[in-house]
């Protein structure tokens, strides 16, 4: 994705999301250990890292689904850590989120899933919300007949598209993507990547994605951050990822078992 940020090269203006010194542990296991990250307005940042490196935990901390033990997360300069639930709800109205398995509500038809944020969050009248939902489904390449189906009737690729339509339905300022291409064939993965690029660009939104799919990284990222050992150990433009000179980045993007990144493999 072409870098659309005015401040993509530096930290001279207030970032859309600013994270400082983030710590999160589960029992003795330290997952995030003083993580710092800035995401500029209208940037698309992708955080890469191995399985179990804490990418999802980072995302859940920003969304307020997990509370970190220490550190600061600011959205538009506003501290969100330990915000009360009502204030958090207000900040979350800026967010859209595509979950790894789409997390569609089984009890609702597809169109109501897409319109959920409009009906419940923004108190929009159901008829008007349905019209917007059909438009958003069309934006991700799905016809209006899909809107009447149940989520259980959809294929994996269609579920991702519906999840994307739901994420963009309220036209959020910030969109989060959790492993957007996991579980999809390469062609469908590329279709989803294209849709993400198109939707984020049309909305002029800020995007934060986590993935370990390098094809997806190259397609949707303006900037890339590598998360290892609870910290961001490399951050730079996607164009520099192949020439970073960082052995951790090199090992990760080439998928080598040998290198400085030690995967935790249980002894047999």
């Amino acid at each position: 994705m072409t870098d659309r940020s005015a401040n993509s090269g530096g930290d001279d203006t207030v970032p859309k999301i600013r994270i400082r010194g983030l710590h999160k542990s589960f029992g003795d296991k330290v997952v995030l250990d003083g993580l710092d990250l800035d995401i500029g307005a209208r940037q698309s940042v992708v955080v890469i890292g191995g399985s179990g490196s804490g990418k999802s935990v980072l995302l859940k901390c920003i969304l307020g689904l997990l509370t970190p033990e220490a550190g600061s997360i600011q959205v538009d300069g506003e501290e969100v850590v330990r915000m009360n639930s009502r204030e958090l709800e207000r900040v979350r109205r800026k967010f859209g989120m595509l979950f790894q398995n789409a997390a569609l509500f089984d009890s609702l038809p597809v169109w109501e899933n897409v319109a959920f944020g409009l009906i419940q969050g923004e108190r929009m009248e159901r008829g008007a919300a349905k019209k917007i939902a059909i438009e958003k489904l069309a934006a991700v390449g799905l016809g209006p007949e899909v809107g009447e189906l149940s989520p259980a009737e959809l294929s994996g690729g269609m579920r991702k598209r519906v999840g994307l339509a739901r994420a963009i339905a309220t036209e959020p300022e910030i969109i989060f993507f959790d492993e957007p291409t996991t579980g999809l064939d390469p062609i469908m993965g590329d279709v989803i990547n294209d849709l993400i690029v198109k939707c984020v660009r049309q909305l002029g939104a800020t995007a934060l994605s986590i993935t370990h799919d390098m094809a997806s990284v190259r397609k949707i990222a303006d900037r890339v951050s590598l998360l290892y050992d609870g910290k961001i150990i490399w951050h730079g433009p996607v164009g520099e990822i192949d020439s970073s000179g960082n052995p951790y980045v090199d090992q990760f993007i080439h998928g080598r078992a040998e290198g400085p990144i030690e995967m935790q493999v249980r002894a047999i």
Binding site: N101, Q120, G121, R166
Partner: peptide, 18 residues
């Protein structure tokens, strides 16, 4: 419980719905 383990409850939170 199924909504919890399939992240549907997290999705509710992110859609600003308690």
């Amino acid at each position: 419980g199924t909504m919890r383990v399939t992240e549907q409850i997290d999705a509710l939170d992110t859609l600003a719905t308690n």
